[in-house]
Design a protein around this nucleic acid. Structure first.
Lengths: 333, 333
DNA sequence: TTGAAAGCGATACCAG
DNA sequence: CTGGTATCGCTTTCAA
């Protein structure tokens, strides 16, 4: 068995209170005794049992992180941010993956609560209305991260409208007039709505441009592939395709590659997100960089602040984005 | 404050022992009392405090997972496997990322220990000799996963020699004779050694083939890019390039793309690993599928078995691999 | 079948 | 500055 505080106390000939004091240096201890205790600790390789400690202090130094799927690079990126910043404040990450199952979101919310996590970050990709009551009950700091939907919880994100507006203007600036936009869904709860509006606004500000909007079935690579076929088939004059998600853009690039259509020479393609593959793929993808790492980092930062009792209003945090200009877009000839 | 077992006991008019019995059904409780207790639990929304429970049972239902970087898709994949199987046995994952820092590996080993994790899985990408003594001290199940080096701990992997041998034979079967192999390093502790041997053996068994071995500086995409330049520059007759890691292969494909060399028409390229991007990239990459998810799954399975006292010898577990034939390789004309 | 009481390993308050 | 002791929330003997 591992040594306990009692073992140390006995061997050092002091009380457990004293041992506790030296390991936490919570109260003054004579340097003589401190030294002896430290020696015994060394000797016994004593390490305080954090579980016991948690029980009395009510601090677990654990943050629960519920994610959809680490297999999505943007999720992994957020978790990196969460973890790295968490560690700076001695917080550890308890990880749960839902694989898109709403039931699981609720289940893990409960589970993490029994494990006494001090805060919870949920990275979701669906809409979940049952969430509300559960999160209220918990009474622990909670941040909701969702790249697709908008729901009424504290969150961290970029200004999707503005980003989309800028990207469209960037393409217009390159001389493109027939810019197709691949949207996923413009309904109420979708962040996509903002993006779509951004595109529309930019287009409407330029007389020689017209809205060309296509809707994809979903937002995976295959969906981009399918829409690309439609666009190319029906709309020969399109010179640029702006996709509301990088995943769609990759699908578009794949379709164009398979059909020997040169990017960017014949057609420019841009995405949204800057997921990992965007800079690796050939051609490299021009896209809007959503700072996933920072989003995670800021999310946990917010939780820790709240834990420390520092003011934390319920407002969303908006992070800056960037237009990453890469090989898939070019000035029109 | 959340309700405790005492609150439940008081409200139900029974002792806490009884409450404990019903929530664990560890001992018979009259159905009448059970019902009442259950009602109160419902009413108070009582959820047992797992921390307190851990303290007495010595079971935290926590497995520590130390990884290099979730940003590497294969790591994320392993963690998925670990977590999904872990959950089946009610285990949760405590995640720590080292970003390649050896010191951090040791540090987190200690940390996880104080957090009373019941087992540890380390996903590493370096050699770490100081590990040995630390892991022995812990006396908890430990599995070591490393895609690059071999170190003397229980691990889960594929037969790298055999995989490399098969892939080389596959290319030979396609009619290729001048097959370049990009190795990272053939030294003692490198798994790479086995791969290199596999390639050599296959080549040696075919009279009209000759070893063409290039060494990359490291094993990232850029390194593959650099080596490709060398190969193309110095070895015009090469018709196939077999890379010891998918990352290198992606670099090679990028170089060929940038220099207008058609894959697979002019040259075939194959990789090793089947990381996520391999099947997305164009052309899709022919490669050896290392079952990362399964490796993680089996690793935690092993730990849980050991925890249950089921026999667990110290031998490595070898998982099957597969040759994924995709678009980057073709029969020679 | 039930309850009382002893711990699990630490912290923290109260005396001295 | 140091020690004794209650306590955190729960499980687990031991008696009844």
């Amino acid at each position: 068995m591992a040594a306990t505080i009692k073992d140390v106390a006995k061997k050092a000939g002091v009380s457990i209170s004293t041992v506790s004091r030296v390991i936490n240096d919570s109260k003054p201890v004579s340097s003589e005794i401190r030294k002896r205790v430290l020696e015994v600790i060394e000797e016994l390789e004593y390490k305080p049992n954090e579980v016991a400690r948690s029980l009395v202090t009510k601090k677990s130094y654990l943050i629960g992180v519920i994610v959809t799927d680490l297999g999505d690079s943007y999720v992994a990126e957020m978790v990196r941010g969460i973890e790295e910043v968490g560690k700076m404040y001695d917080y550890d990450i308890l990880l749960c993956s839902t694989f898109g199952d709403k039931e699981a979101e609720l289940k893990y919310l409960r589970l993490l609560n029994t494990k006494q996590v001090e805060g919870i970050i949920l990275i979701s990709n669906t809409l979940n209305n049952e969430l509300h009551e559960k999160t209220k009950q918990l009474r622990i700091p909670f941040v909701y991260l969702n790249r697709f939907y908008y729901q009424d919880y504290p969150t961290v994100k970029i200004d999707n409208f503005e980003a989309s507006y800028e990207m469209t203007n960037y393409l217009i600036g390159l001389g493109h007039k027939d810019i197709a936009y691949i949207s996923n869904n413009g309904d109420k709860f979708y962040l996509e709505k903002d993006k779509l509006e951004g595109y529309k606004k930019a287009i409407s500000e330029h007389e020689d441009c017209e809205e060309i909007i296509y809707f994809s079935k979903d937002r995976d690579i295959e969906d981009g592939y399918d829409v690309a076929r439609d666009i190319i088939g029906f709309n020969k004059e399109v010179t640029a395709i702006f996709c509301s998600y990088d995943e769609l853009a990759i699908g578009v690039l794949n379709y164009l590659y398979d059909n020997d259509i040169k990017v960017p020479d014949e057609i420019s393609v841009t995405g949204f997100g800057d997921i990992k593959i965007a800079s690796i793929f050939r051609p490299t993808l021009t896209t809007i960089k959503e700072p996933f790492y920072d989003i995670g980092a800021v999310a946990i930062r917010r939780i820790i602040k709240e834990l420390k009792g520092e003011i934390a209003d319920n407002s969303d945090i908006i992070l800056p984005f960037q237009i990453q200009k890469r090989g898939s877009s070019i000035k029109i000839k």
